[in-house]
Simulated scan of single mutants.
Amino acid sequence: MSFPAEPTVVAPDGADVRVLLGVPAGTMAHFELAAGKTARAIVHRTVDEVWFIVAGRGEMWRRQGDREETVPLDPGVCLTIPVGTQFQFRASASVRVAAVAMTMPPWPGAQEAVFVRGPWEASDGEAVAPSDAA
């Protein structure tokens, strides 16, 4: 397939997603967040993800149990988001951030994401969805 010219969908966290390819064990997608934007903080119910940053700059916050960290997102950085890990990412003020990611098993749909409280206010102004707070 060719890279889609337009986003296929907007992820529950607010990122633009271009769905790429999939197999029974997983799917691949391209995620992009515009300059100055912050995604909503979420945790996945059943999927693991592996991200590879392909363009731009930003930061990713992750928390799993007692472990919490913020990782700079620059081209070439690869990171994991194991199931049950709370995470939130944001683009730098001046440039977008883009990643190619694998989701295993395949992404089951919007109900997979549970909104949580992250360290930053999301661009949509929501810290936590009132009905979905974990």
Results as ranks from 00 to 15, higher is better:
residue 110 A to K: 10
residue 97 V to D: 00
residue 112 E to H: 03
residue 91 A to C: 11
residue 74 D to L: 15
residue 95 V to D: 11
residue 117 R to L: 14
residue 98 A to Y: 05
residue 81 I to L: 14
residue 118 G to K: 01
residue 95 V to R: 14
residue 84 G to E: 03
residue 109 G to R: 08
residue 114 V to H: 03
residue 114 V to W: 05
residue 111 Q to I: 09
residue 102 M to Y: 08
residue 83 V to P: 01
residue 79 L to M: 15
residue 70 T to I: 13
residue 104 M to I: 12
residue 102 M to F: 12
residue 69 E to G: 09
residue 69 E to D: 14
residue 104 M to A: 15
residue 111 Q to M: 13
residue 121 E to C: 12
residue 88 Q to V: 06
residue 69 E to S: 12
residue 122 A to R: 00
residue 72 P to H: 10
residue 106 P to Q: 03
residue 81 I to S: 14
residue 79 L to T: 08
residue 105 P to H: 08
residue 103 T to C: 05
residue 117 R to M: 12
residue 115 F to T: 03
residue 115 F to R: 01
residue 77 V to F: 09
residue 89 F to G: 00
residue 96 R to L: 15
residue 88 Q to I: 05
residue 104 M to W: 07
residue 122 A to Y: 02
residue 121 E to L: 15
residue 86 Q to M: 13
residue 79 L to R: 04
residue 95 V to A: 14
residue 83 V to D: 01
residue 82 P to Y: 00
residue 89 F to E: 02
residue 80 T to L: 09
residue 99 A to M: 04
residue 109 G to Y: 09
residue 76 G to S: 06
residue 112 E to F: 02
residue 98 A to G: 13
residue 73 L to E: 00
residue 119 P to V: 02
residue 105 P to E: 04
residue 90 R to L: 07
residue 78 C to P: 08
residue 71 V to Y: 03
residue 114 V to D: 02
residue 75 P to E: 03
residue 100 V to H: 06
residue 69 E to Y: 08
residue 86 Q to S: 11
residue 93 A to N: 13
residue 118 G to Y: 00
residue 120 W to Y: 09
residue 81 I to A: 14
residue 115 F to V: 07
residue 119 P to R: 05
residue 89 F to N: 00
residue 76 G to F: 00
residue 90 R to H: 10
residue 96 R to H: 15
residue 119 P to G: 06
residue 111 Q to K: 13
residue 88 Q to A: 06
residue 104 M to H: 10
residue 95 V to L: 10
residue 96 R to Q: 13
residue 111 Q to V: 12
residue 103 T to V: 13
residue 103 T to W: 01
residue 100 V to T: 03
residue 102 M to G: 11
residue 96 R to S: 15
residue 102 M to P: 06
residue 114 V to F: 06
residue 77 V to R: 07
residue 95 V to E: 15
residue 113 A to R: 00
residue 81 I to G: 12
residue 99 A to T: 05
residue 94 S to K: 14
residue 72 P to A: 13
residue 88 Q to L: 07
residue 100 V to W: 05
residue 101 A to N: 12
residue 114 V to R: 02
residue 84 G to H: 06
residue 120 W to C: 04
residue 118 G to M: 00
residue 121 E to P: 12
residue 87 F to W: 13
residue 110 A to S: 13
residue 73 L to D: 00
residue 91 A to E: 05
residue 119 P to Y: 02
residue 113 A to L: 04
residue 88 Q to M: 08
residue 83 V to G: 03
residue 80 T to N: 10
